[in-house]
Simulated scan of single mutants.
Amino acid sequence: MKKVLLSAAAVLLLSSVAACSQTESEGENAAAEERVAAVEVAEAVKGDLILERSLFGRTAPNSTTPIVLQSPGEVDSLEVENGELVEEDDIIAKLSTPVGKQTIRAPKDGEVANLKAAEGDTVSTEEPFALIADLDTIKLNFTVTADVRKLVEVDKKMNVTIENKQYEATITSVSTMPDDTGLYPVDAKVDNENHTLLPGMVAELSVPEQQIKDAIIIPTASIIEEDDETFVYVVKDNQAKKQVITVVETQSAETAVEGDIQVGDSIIVTGQLTLSDGVQVNVVKGE
């Protein structure tokens, strides 16, 4: 009798465990089906993709005018310091020389630079007393290969980035002769009325190199590469639909693609890495 009771209890226990397991499995499946992923999207557009090459150079004064002494002497007083803006004929310094007192004046408007003397110092005529730098316009100095030289021309306007800010630069000269390194000097200029740009800053010039016309363009950030397959997720009927694509050309921000992508499709750009085909999505931001 005890054996019968124990057997019955065992059967009931196994049935209960099986029922719990089935309930948990059904709950997990239901949770998976109800999962809604928050995503951000951007619209696929049709247009031209311009491929650019970056050139790096340095900023410099548009021009520098040396202040040359007529005779050596001792600095009695300094009226300016480096970095100070002066106008033409402003007094720079006063000297005592063998031929009498000498007043040094600014030869033109600009910023005082390379002033090394101090009051009481003896100065000579062998090197400039100081420089007057024109910083209203900043010069950009680059060196390029022969292939890149073909992409630039005098008076052409291009975008340049300096200290994380973008400016419009105008090409002012393209040398026909290489320098000692075998590269060709290229100069450009940028307006600097507020004097926010200083000599010696790194400048990144964007040179258009190639243009892909009438392409389907999507954000580069939306593209996923996995198992030798390149694809994106498109939002259709509130679901993430996997679309295999072929990359034609890519830039850091935008990529020209081919595939079953239509103009106006909502391409998922954020949250796509955790998706799978058919997952329900909720667009929280984007177009």
Results as ranks from 00 to 15, higher is better:
residue 24 E to Q: 11
residue 267 I to D: 01
residue 205 L to G: 03
residue 190 V to R: 00
residue 141 N to E: 14
residue 125 T to A: 12
residue 13 L to F: 14
residue 275 L to C: 08
residue 151 L to I: 01
residue 87 E to K: 11
residue 187 D to I: 02
residue 195 H to S: 15
residue 78 L to S: 00
residue 76 D to I: 04
residue 203 A to G: 05
residue 220 T to S: 14
residue 207 V to S: 03
residue 1 M to N: 13
residue 185 P to V: 13
residue 219 P to M: 05
residue 194 N to Y: 14
residue 55 L to G: 04
residue 15 S to C: 11
residue 72 P to L: 00
residue 101 K to A: 06
residue 3 K to N: 07
residue 178 P to R: 08
residue 13 L to P: 00
residue 201 M to V: 06
residue 151 L to M: 07
residue 26 E to D: 13
residue 157 K to W: 06
residue 179 D to K: 11
residue 157 K to P: 05
residue 244 V to W: 00
residue 149 R to S: 10
residue 220 T to N: 06
residue 152 V to L: 15
residue 5 L to Q: 14
residue 29 N to M: 01
residue 26 E to L: 12
residue 148 V to M: 14
residue 120 G to V: 09
residue 167 Y to M: 07
residue 28 E to D: 09
residue 66 P to W: 07
residue 214 D to G: 12
residue 77 S to L: 06
residue 231 F to D: 00
residue 34 E to N: 13
residue 11 V to E: 13
residue 179 D to A: 09
residue 39 V to M: 01
residue 174 V to F: 11
residue 178 P to L: 07
residue 111 E to M: 15
residue 122 T to E: 07
residue 126 E to G: 06
residue 157 K to A: 09
residue 131 L to E: 13
residue 221 A to E: 06
residue 3 K to P: 02
residue 156 K to L: 08
residue 110 G to D: 00
residue 3 K to L: 03
residue 212 I to L: 15
residue 255 T to Q: 04
residue 19 A to F: 11
residue 204 E to V: 06
residue 208 P to T: 11
residue 44 A to M: 04
residue 111 E to C: 12
residue 112 V to L: 12
residue 201 M to A: 07
residue 18 A to S: 12
residue 48 D to F: 06
residue 281 V to F: 07
residue 216 I to M: 08
residue 74 E to N: 12
residue 237 D to Y: 05
residue 194 N to G: 10
residue 92 I to D: 00
residue 146 A to N: 13
residue 194 N to V: 10
residue 116 K to I: 15
residue 173 S to M: 08
residue 146 A to K: 12
residue 123 V to I: 04
residue 254 E to G: 06
residue 256 A to P: 05
residue 209 E to C: 09
residue 5 L to M: 14
residue 217 I to N: 01
residue 116 K to V: 15
residue 240 A to Q: 01
residue 164 N to M: 12
residue 35 R to W: 02
residue 73 G to Q: 03
residue 247 V to W: 04
residue 45 V to P: 01
residue 126 E to C: 02
residue 171 I to G: 00
residue 114 N to I: 05
residue 257 V to I: 15
residue 175 S to N: 14
residue 174 V to M: 10
residue 265 D to A: 02
residue 224 I to R: 06
residue 129 F to C: 07
residue 48 D to R: 06
residue 223 I to K: 01
residue 123 V to S: 02
residue 54 S to N: 13
residue 6 L to T: 09
residue 201 M to E: 10
residue 274 T to L: 14
residue 145 T to F: 04
residue 222 S to E: 01
residue 250 T to S: 15
residue 109 D to F: 13
residue 255 T to P: 02
residue 55 L to W: 04
residue 149 R to L: 10
residue 235 V to I: 05
residue 269 V to Y: 01
residue 238 N to L: 08
residue 252 S to G: 09
residue 11 V to F: 12
residue 188 A to L: 07
residue 77 S to F: 08
residue 90 D to E: 10
residue 123 V to E: 01
residue 178 P to I: 07
residue 192 N to P: 10
residue 101 K to C: 04
residue 194 N to A: 15
residue 63 S to D: 13
residue 278 G to N: 10
residue 127 E to K: 12
residue 22 Q to S: 11
residue 109 D to W: 10
residue 269 V to Q: 00
residue 44 A to K: 00
residue 115 L to Y: 07
residue 80 V to S: 01
residue 206 S to C: 05
residue 85 L to P: 00
residue 210 Q to P: 02
residue 45 V to L: 10
residue 228 D to M: 06
residue 9 A to R: 02
residue 41 V to H: 05
residue 43 E to I: 06
residue 276 S to R: 13
residue 131 L to H: 07
residue 41 V to W: 01
